[in-house]
Design a protein around this nucleic acid. Sequence first.
DNA 1: TTGGAATGTCAACAAGGCTGACATAACATT
DNA 2: AATGTTATGTCAGCCTTGTTGACATTCCAA
Lengths: 168, 168
Amino acid sequence: MAQGGPNTSSGENLLFLTDEQLRKGIEAMFFAYRGFTADPDRILEEYGYGRAHHRALHFINRSHGTTVNNLLTTLGVTKQSLNRVLRGLIEDGLVEARVGRTDRRERNLFLTEKGQELERKLAEAQRVRMRAAYRAAGPQAVAGFRQVLEAMMDDDIRQTYHSLKDGR
Amino acid sequence: MAQGGPNTSSGENLLFLTDEQLRKGIEAMFFAYRGFTADPDRILEEYGYGRAHHRALHFINRSHGTTVNNLLTTLGVTKQSLNRVLRGLIEDGLVEARVGRTDRRERNLFLTEKGQELERKLAEAQRVRMRAAYRAAGPQAVAGFRQVLEAMMDDDIRQTYHSLKDGR
DNA sequence: TTGGAATGTCAACAAGGCTGACATAACATT
DNA sequence: AATGTTATGTCAGCCTTGTTGACATTCCAA
């Protein structure tokens, strides 16, 4: 589909984008996101957690010792909303909040052994599907997939995404 | 599709997929979906509607005269959940529910002029971002994007997606 | 000492999922 | 004609996860 094709006469790589084609892309995003979250959701249900808990676990694991404020901006929710989720995870012993060394107002967040266990389980379930999709589509498709997703992000979110890109 | 690349020495098209690469893809999906819904969300807020209303409007527009049951399975929610949303849209005169001709138990759903107006507004906002992302990434990337998304769907959802593919 | 930043907490609310139960109406079958 | 099934709507209640607003505490920094 769409490799240059009959509609590119100039050097500019102009895409021939009908509303119909865009609509297909929109629907694909909608349906694919459902698949994307389906497997973790099933696991979370067993534990009595929701998607918000998964996201918290993911980004705490991603950035050991991150602060609440950091997590807030990454997740794009209010502190009250995050706090409720975090409180549950701390009470259940999946997350530990240590008082900051340099700034003692801050809380540095860490996963406990138990927290790492659940995170691994969720991540692996999600990776299995992702891996299958990548394999089915092939390496070129994967590169394109990532390019389009990145271009779809809000500018400030893309910053966040890149700052996470190479871990820390 | 997917002609090898540097990592394929065998006939099998083996991708070199590290957990790190998969994680980047997972995070890209998360952040991109936020961008994907951001523009319509802002419009919906002005009208006092939510994302659920957008989805209903989209698929009713997509398939004029579809039944409640059809919409239910497409959206993947319960009838109670959909009914609440639908009731609001009907009361506000955006959606019309006509008694079925052949089977009078069914309700065929249509957008009114007013409903089409909002749908167009939402769709155009979403298309603007999609179009920009497609342009930025290029036609090959777009093809890959769609391939990976499709591979990520649940099998039964992929059926639904395809049945919608060529219009009604 | 005082201002402001970071965090936590309480309360209230809303959207939008869910389940269960029940009511109609209409079609289908016996 | 009676019965069963299907499509839909509706009521009630519950959950998660988002929101705002208000206020307390802690503690860094000027």
